[in-house]
Amino acid sequence: MNVLTATDAGLIGCTRCGRVWTPDHAHCERCGATLHKVDKSGLQRVWAWWIAGLIFYIPANLYPMLVTATLGHEQKNTIVGGAMELWRHHNYGVALIIFGASVMIPIGKFIAIAYLALAVGNERRKGGPPHLHLYEVVEFIGRWSMIDVFVVAILSALVQLGFVASIHPGPAAASFALSVAFTMLSAQSFDPRLIWRGPDRVSS
């Protein structure tokens, strides 16, 4: 695929509004954003956030997400445990949503970001529209992972019936929220312009 990139043309594209400027511009004169040269140093931040997110994703799955106390009987559920519990109680829809939002999306995000970061780092591979689509999907879908955190937050606020029933967030809720936030930052740190750096065009 032959694409003329801004870098190829000796210009710098604004990452916010897309206007290209000559390299002597430090700021985008249209939107005011700082102009960056395309380079792989940004990938460091991607990886850093990515690793932080992954680290927090481990306790998020090991610790209980939800502590449900019903008539003196306390039940603690991890994310996967909760989804399985729902599935066992034939709440298939909710179980699938929870599983999708809390397990599949975050894991998919980790894989996708890692793939993109590796792909742009690998100079022999061609970038292209598929990578861009993937990146867009990741950026869009990332926030939906927070659905589980919201569920926990709302339930904890609503279900406080003392001895009869009460729900508290477990340690996993905070970890999971942090994990999601970090992966979102990771996705944002990724410079999509790197996608267009073909094997021949890479400078630096």
Binding site: Q44, A48, W49, A52, I55, P59, S175, S189
Partner: peptide, 15 residues
């Protein structure tokens, strides 16, 4: 190295 690397480091320590 980016300063951002501090974040996963802290995350690791916390975990």
């Amino acid at each position: 190295l980016s300063v951002v690397w501090i974040v996963p480091l802290i995350a690791l320590l916390i975990t």
